[in-house]
Amino acid sequence: MNTARKRYGDTVFRCLTLLMALSIFALVALIGIELFEGSGKSMHKFGWHFLVSSVWDPIAEEYGALPFIFGTLVSSAIALIIAVPISIATAVYLTELAPRVVSQLLTMFIELLAAVPSVILGLWGVFVMVPWLRDHLFPWLQNHLGFLPLFQGPIYGVSMFAGGIIVAIMIIPIITSVSREILQSVPKLQREAAYALGATRWEVTRISVLSYAKKGLFGAVILGLGRALGETMAVTMVIGNSPQIVKSLFAPGYTLSSVIANEFNEATGSLYPSALFEMGLVLLGVTVLVNALAQLLLTTFAGPNVKPQN
């Protein structure tokens, strides 16, 4: 009787959690189907050409996604290049080195940063960050690294680079928090073993903590990347909103999510909104593709997951 009830409870529990898990599938599938249906007209008219065309002309009804895909990938890449070292270093400091009080205080601040709404960050970006970048950082970069095409051309402040930086600020909290949790879950035994072999603090961190946790850290970075790809409001306020593919990071750019947010409200007719729907579908596709690539990278370079032996 008692065991029967237990089993019954288990079944209910399993079904319930399965249902919840399936609802995630259903949500993604629904979004995908809806986007697919909405973009029917545009797909019919432009076909695969949509993905490689650089023209975005609502008046001539010519639409192409390439500069937007470019902008989304480049701004996210800049964001990761800036955010990953900062976040992981912060997480290491918090778990391995910082005194408890400092660690708690810093953690609180990181969580506070995560709570700042993106439109507020965007306003700060427009009025504080962009002028500073324009007057100080960008000219400095141009003076010292101006031989690189990345840092050539006129400086307006609003730029692909500014977009990348604002996204970096937005994903630092999430990568840091998740990385911290992961590093904390590394068993003490790992560290003690390394210390026993006479390793220094750096060696302990590198050999027994970071390499043990690398898969989890990679996951944290992917979570950050997912957010970076879809970030909209703050980016659109500082990126300059100009659909073009140029080498200079000082030139304005545009992202997939920004153009949807900017133009959907005023999109009249039937082809125009359909093209914007297809942009949403492309964004979904890019996100899936980038995540899949990252997973592939992980299994190739980090090897299959080593189960911790607790």
Binding site: V55, D57, P58, I59, A60, P131, R134, Y254, A267
Partner: peptide
């Protein structure tokens, strides 16, 4: 070459979001 509409294919320039975005760029640059 460009035409009239609520959104255009601009031959040049920076895009600001909303009146406040455009005004912000003008007052800063």
């Amino acid at each position: 070459s460009v035409g009239k509409g609520t959104a255009l294919k601009w031959p040049t320039g920076l895009g600001g979001k909303g009146n406040e975005g455009v005004a912000g760029q003008i007052t800063q640059l």
